[in-house]
């Protein structure tokens, strides 16, 4: 509040500078708020996702850990989420998502599409 009063009463460059400082402070606060992450886990077993339906909160950054328990490689892919990442046999990858709007986002395993299908439920 005080800064705003100063910026109103002051003039010229000082005024502009203070406004910028205020703006940057606000933006970094917003960024910090956004950085709060929700961690979710997804496993691949027998070329299927477990769980096949995964619920995560809306408007939050999500850190999705995909653990491939099979010995064979898989590619986690989703055009809804715009993601594409290889996960080797017995490997784990991190897929960063969001913040996402509420809704249903489909994903699949590119190498075993006949079985590896799943949905991310964002609410």
């Amino acid at each position: 509040m005080r800064t705003i009063i100063i910026s109103v009463t002051d003039k010229g460059i000082k005024n502009v500078m203070l406004r910028w400082i205020l703006l940057i402070a606000l933006m970094s606060f917003a960024a910090a708020a956004q950085a709060l992450e929700y961690e979710a886990k997804l496993a691949i077993r027998d070329h299927k996702f477990d769980p096949a339906e995964l619920s995560v909160p809306a408007n939050t950054k999500i850190k999705l850990l995909v653990e491939n328990q099979d010995a064979t490689p898989e590619e986690f892919e989703s055009s809804d989420l715009n993601r594409e990442k290889v996960v080797v046999g017995k490997g784990t990858i991190t897929v960063l998502l969001g913040p996402l709007d509420a809704g249903k986002y489909h994903f699949f395993g590119d190498f075993h599409q006949e079985t590896a299908q799943g949905d991310l439920i964002v609410k």
Partner: peptide, 12 residues
């Protein structure tokens, strides 16, 4: 991607 996929096919 083909190599990874085929490796998986062979391994399974």
């Amino acid at each position: 991607e083909i190599v990874l996929f085929l490796y998986g096919q062979a391994a399974s």
